[in-house]
Computed example of a mutant assay.
Amino acid sequence: MSGAKGRKKKKGIVYIPGDSLIHSLDPRTKLLLLIVFSIMSFLTMNLLVMSLIFACIMALAYTSGLFRKWMHSLRLVIPLILFVFIIDLFFSYEHSGIELFSAQIGFIHAYATEGSLYFSISMVIRLLIIAGFSFLFIMTTRYSDFVKSLQRMRVPHVISFSLGYALSSTTTLSRDANNVIDAQKSRGLEFDRGSPIKKMDKLLSLFIPMTVIMLNRSSQVSDAMQCRGYGNAKRPSLYRAPALGTDDVQVLVVLVLFLILVLTLIHFVFI
Rank of each mutant, 00 (worst) to 15 (best):
255 L>V: 05
238 L>G: 06
240 R>S: 09
220 Q>H: 02
224 A>N: 04
226 Q>E: 13
232 N>L: 14
213 I>Y: 06
244 L>S: 08
219 S>C: 02
242 P>F: 07
234 K>D: 11
208 I>E: 04
237 S>Q: 14
213 I>W: 04
210 M>P: 02
211 T>Q: 13
254 V>I: 11
221 V>K: 13
234 K>S: 12
221 V>R: 11
217 R>K: 13
208 I>D: 03
222 S>L: 10
227 C>N: 11
244 L>T: 07
240 R>G: 00
219 S>W: 02
252 L>P: 00
220 Q>C: 00
225 M>E: 01
248 D>R: 05
215 L>Y: 11
218 S>P: 00
248 D>P: 14
229 G>Y: 09
234 K>I: 04
213 I>C: 03
256 V>K: 11
245 G>M: 06
244 L>R: 05
253 V>E: 07
212 V>T: 06
211 T>W: 01
249 V>P: 06
234 K>M: 09
242 P>H: 13
242 P>T: 09
217 R>P: 07
256 V>C: 10
250 Q>R: 14
213 I>F: 05
252 L>S: 07
240 R>E: 11
251 V>R: 02
225 M>L: 15
236 P>M: 08
224 A>T: 07
235 R>N: 14
234 K>W: 02
249 V>M: 14
241 A>W: 03
216 N>M: 02
219 S>D: 07
227 C>D: 01
245 G>I: 04
252 L>G: 01
247 D>Q: 15
223 D>P: 00
239 Y>F: 11
247 D>E: 13
225 M>P: 00
216 N>T: 01
215 L>G: 00
235 R>A: 10
234 K>F: 06
241 A>C: 03
245 G>K: 14
240 R>Q: 12
253 V>I: 15
239 Y>I: 15
233 A>R: 12
251 V>K: 03
235 R>D: 10
248 D>H: 08
231 G>K: 11
223 D>I: 08
217 R>Y: 01
231 G>R: 12
237 S>I: 10
208 I>R: 09
229 G>N: 06
232 N>I: 12
254 V>S: 14
251 V>I: 15
226 Q>W: 00
236 P>W: 02
216 N>P: 01
255 L>I: 02
232 N>T: 09
217 R>L: 10
245 G>L: 05
244 L>E: 09
242 P>W: 08
231 G>C: 06
255 L>R: 00
237 S>D: 13
210 M>R: 11
212 V>H: 07
256 V>S: 11
